[in-house]
């Protein structure tokens, strides 16, 4: 009898436990993999600067309070824009849907907020949104975003998962040194749209970029503007 077989030996039991646990995952998750990973038409991979911004988003754990998933209800599409579809997330590693909205959804924040808005808001949220309970993130003006790691990530996903990056994204220090000016130029473009805050002027931000470092805030804004 089958059940006796389970009771007979702790290791049979362990095997049976594992099987019972595994079966749900096998059927629910595995078969969908190829389909769900397909990008929507026209989706571009994140630029290196945007990836660095995504790292800032992860580092300061914005996911604790902000979602990136618009559900298919009128109240949500009215507030945040078109509902999210699977293929839009094809290049999101990890996914950043979040599970709690202490603040609003950000999946299409790039459609309705601007560089200047983010700049003023991240410096002092209640000044832009009265009553806001979000903390200010002023250290993002001082800290440099890790663009080299972002580049390493781009190289990795290009080689391992065939994310369509151009030929400039290649393994090794040399390739990175060659690519770095492109990232700095992207950063400069964002910084030029900025206005400067009471604490850090626009010139200081630009100066930091010219010295080869991208302030976290610039990378983050590049990333947020990309969310459309």
């Amino acid at each position: 009898m089958f059940f006796r077989w389970i009771e007979r030996n702790p290791f049979f039991m362990a095997a049976w436990i594992s099987l019972v646990i595994a079966v749900a995952g096998l059927i629910e998750i595995v078969p969908d993999f190829a389909k769900a990973a397909r990008p929507v038409e026209g989706l571009k991979p994140y630029t290196v600067l945007e990836l660095a911004g995504k790292e800032v988003y992860k580092k300061d754990n914005c996911i604790a309070c902000h979602s990136q998933l618009i559900r298919p209800f009128k109240s949500e599409t009215d507030r945040y824009g078109d509902f999210s579809v699977s293929g839009e997330y094809a290049y999101d590693r990890p996914f950043l849907w979040g599970s709690k909205r202490t603040g609003p959804d950000l999946h299409r924040v790039g459609r309705y907020r601007t560089t200047v808005w983010h700049e003023a808001h991240m410096w002092n949220p209640p000044a832009v949104v009265p009553g806001s309970i979000m903390p200010a993130y002023r250290h993002m003006w001082k800290n440099a975003a890790d663009i080299e790691t972002a580049y390493a990530e781009a190289v990795t996903v290009k080689n391992a998962f065939h994310t369509p990056y151009g030929p400039g994204i290649r393994k090794g220090k040399e390739a990175w040194e060659k690519y770095k000016p492109t990232v700095l130029a992207q950063a400069r473009k964002v910084a030029e749209e900025m206005k400067g805050t009471e604490g850090v002027s626009k010139e200081e931000v630009l100066k930091m970029i010219d010295s080869g470092k991208v302030p976290e805030i610039v990378a983050l804004i590049a990333y947020l503007n990309r969310l459309k």
């Binding site: 629910e28 998750i29 969908d32 993999f33 769900a36 990973a37 699977s86 293929g87 839009e88 997330y89 094809a90 290049y91 999101d92 590693r93 990890p94 996914f95 849907w97 998962f161």
Partner: peptide
Amino acid sequence: MYSGTNDAL
């Protein structure tokens, strides 16, 4: 190793 919806699942 997983992206987007897969990663979420």
